[in-house]
């Protein structure tokens, strides 16, 4: 089944060194279209560093990051600036929430539309019809995305005044606004209560189905991961130690060892 799917993101032998420390060691993984993939592993395994390399915040020491958009030429992402990576179709959220706290909820999402819209300085000053139309399109799209993640009632609140769980969902809406092919979520359930988490897993599934967006998520909440994602990749000490379906991962002795003391079974 998996083999027939179109490959979307292909990471080959990604390595990242910080001084003498190898934070990510030759990690390869592939995310196919329509998948909800998960990257798990104990704290400090290098998951977020991996994300930062893929999204261009860090330049990897070696390895290849390839994006294969359907019907378009393959693109190599390493060395690109983060904004270019986002333009190519990768959007992300952050482990420790990074919203534009002094802007409203709606404006946060509107920022996500930036790379898909065009008005520059001169046209913004003239503010002719096409600019106004584009502006209205940005507002409408952003509002619809807020509805999708269930935040429309906060639309004019400042982002910093939102409850914690809502801030996480706002980050997702903002990332969606960039029209991504692949959405990278860095611990989207961190700090959420069980109710919020179950809402979140529905949201992630809905995004995956309705928007045809592939998702790669880093997560600690094993229940969530086991329930919604397939395949799962496991990292430890910078290396990928296992990959497979939730069932395979659960019975993998290496994974059990890595998670010794943590609860693996769903």
């Amino acid at each position: 089944m998996t083999d027939k799917k179109h490959k979307l993101l292909e990471v080959k032998g990604l390595t990242m060194d910080f001084g003498g420390l190898r934070a990510v060691d030759s990690v390869s993984l592939t995310v196919h279209e329509g998948e909800i993939a998960a990257l798990i592993g104990p704290n400090g395994a290098g998951k977020t560093t991996f994300f930062n390399c893929v999204t261009g915040i860090y330049t990897p020491t070696s390895g290849d990051i390839l994006l294969h958009p359907k019907g378009l030429a393959t693109r190599r992402l390493n060395g690109l600036k983060p904004n270019k990576v986002t333009e190519m179709g990768l959007a992300r959220t952050f482990q420790n929430i990074r919203l534009f706290s002094g802007m409203t909820v709606l404006e946060n999402v509107m920022i996500g539309r930036h790379c898909r819209t065009y008005s520059g300085i001169f046209r913004s000053i003239i503010r002719n019809r096409s600019v106004r139309e584009e502006e209205q399109e940005i507002v409408e799209t952003s509002y619809r995305l807020l509805e999708k993640v269930g935040l429309e009632k906060f639309v004019n609140e400042f982002a910093r005044n939102l409850p914690y769980g809502a801030q996480r969902r706002l980050e997702i809406a903002r990332a969606l606004a960039t029209d991504p092919l692949l959405l990278l979520l860095d611990e989207p359930a961190a700090g959420m209560n069980p109710y919020e988490t179950s809402e979140l897993d529905q949201l992630i599934c809905r995004i995956s189905e309705e928007e045809q967006i592939a998702i790669l998520l880093i997560e600690h909440d094993m229940k969530l991961v086991m329930k919604i994602s397939n395949p799962i990749f496991v990292m430890e000490y910078g290396k990928k130690i296992a990959q497979g379906s939730p069932l395979e991962i659960r019975d993998n002795p290496k994974v059990i060892e890595a998670y010794l003391g943590e609860e693996v079974d769903a």
Binding site: T55, G56, I57, K81, P82, N83, T86, E87, A91, R92, F94, R98, L99, F100, S101, G102, M103, E107, M110, I111, G112, R113, H114, C115, R116, T117, S119, G120, I121, S124, R127, V131, E134, E135, I138, R174, A175, A177, T178
Partner: peptide, 23 residues
């Protein structure tokens, strides 16, 4: 405008800003 919002976003958080596709 679109440009002005990008300015403000840049002031608020540079990393989030580039991650949202702003040059």
């Amino acid at each position: 405008s679109r440009v002005g919002r990008a300015w403000i976003a840049l002031r608020e958080d540079e990393i989030a800003c580039v991650a949202m596709g702003i040059d």
